[in-house]
Structures are given as structure tokens and as C-alpha cells.
Simulated assay, not measured.
Amino acid sequence: MRIIAATESHYEYIREHDRHIVDSFILPKIRGNEIYMLQNDEDQLIGWMRHSYFWDNTPFMNMIWIDEPYRNRGLGKQAILFWENEMKKLGFELVMTSTLANEGAQHLYRKLGYRDAGGLLLEGEPLEILMTKRL
């Protein structure tokens, strides 16, 4: 798998595939290097990950997506470790993410050293588990 910074040429792909971001946020996030594209060995797009900053000072991974045929191959782990390394290069010592309590991703994050840091309950939704990791 290759991981590259998203460019404006990826705008339509992200707009069509990422249902969890407002369209008007996509280009600023691309220009701010807050979206990475995941490619297979044939350079086909197989997913993405994007982040923002919690409290405007702590990198927070908002979304990681890997297309179904490419799951359970260690690519999620590879992408997360890549992102952590990028954040470390930028001088950050702490990163955050979250996952729903009914999602299996929480187990992957814990295996990678993330620790539960709290939760958020929204009406009608499962618990959102906030997680942190020291780099």
C-alpha cells in the first residue's frame, strides 16, 4: 500500500466517498495536508484517512476508511502508524482518535497503544470512545 497526501485532484473522490465531511471543508483540509489517500500496488485508490486538531492543538484522526476487499490485511495498522509518524515529525507528542463502542476498531487502537480517555453519549447513538496515545 502507498499513502500519499491528498491533492485537489482527489476532491471528487473524497466528496463522493466520504459521507462524514461537509463538502466545503474538503479543499481546506486537502490544502492543510489533513487528508491522506491510500492506494494499492496498482495505484488505485482504496481508501483515505483524515484528521483535524482537538482543541486546535492535538492531532485527532477523524476518519480512516479502507475499502472492503482490502480489509483485514494490516493496512489499517499501517495507515495509523504512518499518520502517527507524520504527526511526530510535526513535533506532536500526543494524538487522539475515537470510535463507536460497537465498532471493532477500538481493539486495533488498543493494540497500537491507544488508551481510553473518556466518552461521548449522543442521543440514540452508541458510546463514542475517545482515545489517546503518547508518541
Rank of each mutant, 00 (worst) to 15 (best):
Q106W: 02
K29E: 14
L75A: 06
V95E: 01
R19C: 02
N57C: 13
L27I: 15
K111P: 02
N57A: 12
A117H: 09
K133D: 00
L38Y: 06
H51E: 04
D18M: 08
V95M: 09
Y70N: 08
I30T: 10
F82P: 07
T97R: 04
G113Q: 03
I26C: 10
L108S: 07
D41S: 10
L81K: 13
I14M: 04
G119L: 00
L122H: 11
N102S: 09
L75C: 01
E93G: 03
A5S: 15
D116M: 08
I30L: 13
E8C: 04
R50N: 15
P59H: 12
S52Q: 08
G124H: 09
T97Q: 08
L130R: 12
G124W: 07
R31S: 09
E84I: 15
E125M: 11
L108F: 09
N72T: 08
E123K: 11
A105Y: 06
G119A: 12
I26Y: 10
M63D: 12
W83H: 11
D67H: 12
E103M: 10
G104E: 14
N33H: 14
E42K: 15
E8F: 11
T132R: 01
N102I: 15
V22R: 12
G74I: 01
R19Q: 06
P126M: 08
D116L: 13
E8A: 11
M49A: 06
M96T: 13
L108G: 07
S24A: 07
G119S: 14
D43L: 10
A101P: 03
L90Y: 02
S9E: 12
L94N: 10
L90N: 03
L100I: 02
R15K: 15
D18N: 14
D41R: 09
Y13M: 04
M63I: 00
W83P: 11
G118D: 02
H107V: 14
N85F: 07
L127T: 13
W48S: 00
I26D: 03
F25H: 13
G118M: 06
P69K: 12
E16D: 04
Y36N: 02
M63V: 00
I14F: 08
A79S: 14
I3W: 15
T58S: 13
K77V: 05
L121S: 01
A79G: 02
E84C: 06
E103G: 04
Y53K: 05
L108T: 05
W48L: 08
